[in-house]
């Protein structure tokens, strides 16, 4: 696992890059200066990663990059070389595929309003849950895990509830401490 900074600043020049996106392998030519977000949206036709600020502040462009949730607006596209990337489109296959339990839980709990933050929020939740399969999960832990994803509609309450419902091991609510 590497940090967002390491991914941003350790580039090397290449003509084309190969990466796995939503379980499929892609090789695409490098466009100098291109952001991962633009490559995904403009060249690969995805609409799930959203641009909310272009500065890594809102989380709407979140993707899962080698197992961690990162802002794709801050990642040079060429850093995707060799990476395994999942966007919201990768959680359920097309219109026919089943929803990921996190997606279903967001729907069921009313954690979706305008939906602009939703893809990023779901992916951050997914990474958090993947990293806490056997850890007792509490709501304060979820709050922290989602703190990089802004939502202006819901007040976060139903989002946190949706994620909590997906945790395989739940912490004691009595021990959750202060809100």
């Amino acid at each position: 696992m590497c940090t967002q900074n390491e991914i941003m600043f350790t580039a090397e020049a290449k003509e084309s890059i190969t990466f796995t996106l939503n379980n499929k392998e892609y090789t695409v030519p490098v466009v100098p200066g291109e952001r991962l977000l633009d490559m995904l949206r403009n060249r690969l036709g995805l609409s799930g990663p959203k641009e909310g600020c272009g500065a890594g502040e809102c989380g709407a462009c979140t993707v899962i990059f080698n197992g961690i949730n990162l802002n794709s607006c801050l990642i040079p596209a060429e850093r995707a070389d060799g990476a395994v990337i999942t966007t919201i489109e990768g959680l359920s296959e097309g219109i026919e595929g089943d929803l990921d339990p996190v997606q279903q839980s967001f729907l069921d709990h009313g954690a979706v309003q305008c939906g602009y933050c939703t893809p990023g929020m779901v992916l951050s939740a997914k990474v958090f849950l993947d990293h806490n399969k056997s850890t007792p999960v509490t709501r304060p832990m979820i709050k922290e895990a989602l703190s990089g994803n802004l939502c202006r509609c819901t007040g976060y309450q139903k989002i946190v509830d949706a994620v909590y419902a997906c945790a395989p091991v739940k912490g004691d609510p009595e021990e959750e401490g202060e809100v």
Binding site: S47, G48, P49
Partner: peptide, 13 residues
């Protein structure tokens, strides 16, 4: 649940 929630949670909206 929002009837247009499905396309929102899947990024298709």
């Amino acid at each position: 649940p929002l009837l247009d929630g499905l396309e929102k949670v899947t990024g298709r909206a």
